[in-house]
Amino acid sequence: MMFKKRTNADEAKKLFLEAVKPLSGHELLPIADCDGRSIARDVTAGIDVPHYRRAAMDGFAVRASDTMGAGSSSPVIFKQGQHIEKGVCVKVHTGSPVPQGADAVVILEDTVSYDGNIEIYTQIHPLKNVGDIGEDVRKGDVILRKGQRIRPCDIAVLASLGINNIKVAGKPLVAIIPTGEELVPRGKRELKVGEVYETNGLMASLYSRKWGGIPRLLDIVTDDPEKIKQAITSNLDADMFIISGGTSVGRRDYVPGVVGSMGNLLVHGVGISPGKPTALGIINGKPVVCMPGYPVAGIVALYWFARPALRKLGNLPDEPDRVVRAMLSEKIPSRTGYKTFARVKLDNGKAIPLATSGAGILSSVSKADGFVIIPENIEGLSAGEKVEVILIE
């Protein structure tokens, strides 16, 4: 099985992502629906938070100067009242307004009440236990920056400002085209010899949604270049294509040729293992990831190419991988010239390799906690080596 050229994994990613252009559209959404989305423009505070001086603790509002000399053995005695004046304090609760004339709050634990009098056993300074106007957010402050990924805590801040709707970057529409004569729709009938249920399209759809896209999973397309071309042509409203299967150099592997005939085939053959038959291209300005039909190779292609492309399309900042350190329980072989993605299971600080060969063994990914990525210039890793495991979830 030969390719005209095998492109280095990092070079292939760089070439592909340089051709991906972020979407310019946006949509107005209720803030409750914006978790994980990207801000389309800066959000500015229209009010101060808090917009009034508030008590930060339960206790008594006072003039701080009136507590001068108070101590654990020499309390200052106040009268409890409704208005602040010299020697008079007002009871407050956390979050309630600080009465006019007060500039501090003495916490309940530092007081003793009796017969309408309040003994205060600590000297405090102005603004002690008081949330000043704008302490949290100042009117005019930029709260969220364009391109920032929105988290639940950010949504809470927006809610505190009385903001109900914001503009977010549009989600990329991803057309997913499973190809192959051997594929059968799940649940339609029992399999014959040589047939398999279609899984790659489903997997690509779920990952596309997880990574910020809107998947459109199409029906299975047979290994026919005209039908593959028609499936692409009928979905040119999509922002990205993921095509599964038909990417190698066999008699029925038509996908790279179709992509090249309709646009620009950037890469066919990548130095990743598994995943060498991956092809990448651009059609009508839309990125196309052609993932191998073997499931594990397909997952690697999705992770290495589709995920960053989707995030760039959706104006989402690329997030660092979740990584844990572990010790290899046994040797992992690899080929120089290929970035190898080895599946491992974690157990008490050890990384246990799972089916390190066999790109069609899908269950090995389900059993795995993550991948160990072995660089191109290294020929395998030895048992006992410390490695970084990139978590699948």
Rank of each mutant, 00 (worst) to 15 (best):
K13T: 13
R138P: 02
K312F: 07
A306M: 06
E388M: 09
V289Q: 06
R209Q: 14
M1G: 15
V168Q: 03
L28S: 13
R63S: 09
D136N: 14
P50D: 03
V193I: 13
G245I: 03
D35Y: 11
I150T: 04
M57P: 09
D224G: 07
C34Y: 08
K139F: 04
Y207D: 09
T199L: 14
R307E: 07
G384A: 00
P225C: 04
G281Q: 00
R53C: 01
P97S: 04
Y197W: 15
T199C: 15
G116W: 04
Q148K: 12
F3E: 08
V221M: 08
P126A: 11
I272W: 00
L236R: 10
A104L: 02
V324Y: 08
V106E: 06
E109R: 12
A159W: 10
G275N: 00
E18S: 11
E190W: 10
D239W: 02
A64P: 01
P22R: 03
V193E: 15
Y197C: 13
E393N: 14
R186Q: 15
G246R: 08
F16K: 03
K13F: 09
H93L: 12
Y338Q: 07
V92A: 00
A55R: 01
E18G: 09
L302P: 00
S74E: 15
D219Y: 09
K86T: 15
R251A: 15
E379D: 10
E379T: 11
D33L: 14
K345S: 11
R325P: 02
I31Y: 07
P185Q: 08
R63V: 13
A359F: 00
S208R: 07
V387M: 01
I166K: 07
S74Q: 14
G246I: 01
V174C: 02
D347M: 12
G370D: 05
K227T: 11
F241N: 03
D110G: 05
V142G: 02
D141K: 09
A368T: 07
E135N: 10
T340P: 01
I228Y: 06
T336P: 06
D369Y: 05
M57L: 14
E181M: 13
V49A: 09
K286R: 14
L265K: 01
D237N: 10
V112F: 14
V88P: 00
R63P: 05
N377I: 10
S208H: 06
D223Y: 04
E27P: 02
L23F: 01
G269V: 03
R189P: 05
A231D: 04
V105Q: 09
E319D: 05
V157P: 08
F3Q: 07
K146C: 07
K5I: 10
V137R: 11
T233F: 13
R54H: 11
D66P: 05
V62S: 02
L158A: 05
V323D: 11
Q82C: 08
P172A: 04
P295W: 00
D223M: 08
S205L: 04
M2C: 15
M1V: 12
Q100A: 14
A355S: 13
E27R: 06
H268A: 02
V300G: 00
F341D: 00
G116R: 06
S261T: 06
M262E: 08
R322S: 13
S72Q: 12
T111S: 04
V255M: 05
D136Y: 15
V324E: 08
Y303Q: 13
L183Q: 02
A19Q: 14
I374C: 01
D35K: 15
M262T: 06
T233L: 15
Y294S: 15
D10Q: 11
L173H: 12
M262C: 05
P185I: 08
L158W: 01
G116I: 03
